[in-house]
Design a binder for these strands. Structure first.
Lengths: 301, 301
DNA sequence: TTCATTATCTGACTTTAGTCAGATAATTGT
DNA sequence: ACAATTATCTGACTAAAGTCAGATAATGAA
């Protein structure tokens, strides 16, 4: 797959222009008499219940020693308090003090003012187009940040996704959903050599999954396709499905994929149809299925 | 003029997502065994005729001492040479050596690869939308970076704009353009207390101008409206005109603005009509004018 | 010619950012 | 109860970024 030179040039022009703007916001965070890193940490903690130190570290991508020092410095300034988490006294939670919350609001207003100035600099007609285009870029850039990778179906992240999958089906299916009554998709079946389990991550957060259960004689089944509600419409399911198909052909040598789905999952059916699956007569007695699909992979490019 | 909260939130969401991405490119510039600042300088010099040190300093916003050190360091590594400018031996120009050009190409390819990866992460349908939206954001953000401010009509920047204005009219008017034959718009007439001269700047570069010549009895004239070809269509002229009108009312207490224009300047006529000017019979004997416009400012909000 | 101005450089700094190897303390599994 | 693991902290660093007050040299104007 290759990309047009002109498109690459557009992205680069975009980067150049946007970098300037973003830099301007950062430097407005400076000039609060505090290093930028401290401001970022303070801003990230935010008002509310407080944030675990490890969480902060992950979000900002900072070294643990460095983070510890930044927090201590903010503590000395009386902007935050660090308290051990009652549930696990190894972890600490950072919470804003009253003064910290005031400072946070100032930073928040700086960000707002920055956005406002930007919008005020263009006339209302262009402003509307700008906001629309920004929302579009944001959405699609988020989509571009989603990474699909195989994981063990019993890994922490995979289990969390599967749990949310089950939870969602139980609310969406009229009759509820009990995985025990459904046709099995056990971990061992979605792990090499018998199958595969793929996880979609957005900035480290698991936002979707899908399993492949390879059968005998060139047939396989797509199982446990799920995408987190807040990232739907970004093409994550499409990418998971494409990755499953690729693995089915390249790694398992399959020539057919089948799947079953419930009538309540309308988006899923639309995706399958759009991805070249055609509805076929019931090939299983899955109690929760209303539709059965099949795709011939042997014609794949 | 105020801005919707939801629009502000969109801009902020955009900033959050884009900042991550941009940061990723910066860190790819690192890992070249060189501080980021040096990479930026090297990249900014670029292949070609070389860049004046002051120019570099302005583009990157760095301290002169710091810049001097960065350049010396790049010089020691054999990536650039610094030579005095023959025209003014106080200024120095930085030029890439053969090795510097090689390194520059590597950085350029990193940027390309970065853009390519971004585009490859979305499917072709979304990719097309992403590129379109990015181009739109880039254009409109550029528009938002244009600042309009009054300057003395004899200041360096103003003279440069006026020179380009005259130059453009001489090529566009069928009969050429000789400012001496045209009705006067001398510096003194476009300088307080008799008038005003506004300059539009984009990141420090003068990209447009417009003059106001206040007359007796509440009437004023718009003069010397010009916008650099590469930023046309961004609403710069509209903003200049709006700023002139605002000053006309608030600072000069005028109630009518008039202007004349040549038939060859079709965009200008469209702008004037769209801005509430109506065509009136010739009120001057300006030899280069084909159309005369007038706007009543007393009804202004 | 002389003096103010301009462009760049130098030296002497400070602060910020970031890294790494342990130390400490709570928790979990056996 | 004991060892391994996990979350955070501490100390001792280094490098990068940035600032500031002059120094130096070329230029332009009086």
């Amino acid at each position: 797959m290759n990309v047009a030179e002109t498109d690459i040039e557009s992205v680069r022009a975009f980067n150049r222009v946007v970098t300037r703007r973003v830099g301007a916001l950062e430097s407005s965070f400076l000039g609060r008499g505090r290093p930028l890193a401290e401001c970022r940490v303070l801003f990230e903690i935010g008002p509310g219940e407080g944030v675990r130190v490890a969480e902060l570290r992950a979000r900002l991508g900072l070294d643990s020693g460095y983070m510890s020092r930044l927090l201590r410095s903010l503590g000395r300034e009386g902007l935050i308090v660090l308290a051990p988490d009652p549930a696990d006294r190894r972890v600490r939670r950072a919470t804003l003090t009253e003064a910290g919350a005031r400072e946070w609001r100032t930073l928040d207003e700086l960000s707002d003012g920055f956005a406002r100035d930007l919008l005020m600099a263009v006339d209302p007609r262009r402003r509307e187009r700008l906001v629309r285009a920004m929302a579009e870029v944001e959405r699609l850039l988020t989509a571009a940040s989603v990474a699909v990778a195989p994981v063990d179906p019993e890994a922490e992240e995979a289990r969390a996704c599967l749990a949310r999958y089950v939870e969602e089906l139980s609310t969406r299916f009229e009759a509820g959903f009990d995985p025990a009554r459904s046709i099995s998709a056990a971990a061992a079946e979605m792990r090499p050599p018998r199958g595969l389990f793929l996880l979609a991550r957005l900035d480290g957060r698991a936002v979707g999954c899908g399993g492949l259960k390879a059968g005998r004689e060139g047939g396989g089944e797509v199982k446990r396709m799920w995408v987190a509600p807040d990232v739907r419409g970004l093409g994550v399911a499409r990418r998971l499905l494409a990755a499953i198909e690729e693995a089915a052909v390249d790694e398992f040598g399959l020539d057919t994929l089948r799947l079953e789905t419930n009538g309540a999952l309308r988006e899923a059916q639309a995706l399958y149809r759009a991805s070249g699956y055609r509805e076929v007569p019931a090939f299983s007695d899955e109690p929760y299925a209303h539709h059965w699909f099949e795709k011939d992979l042997s014609a794949r490019a």
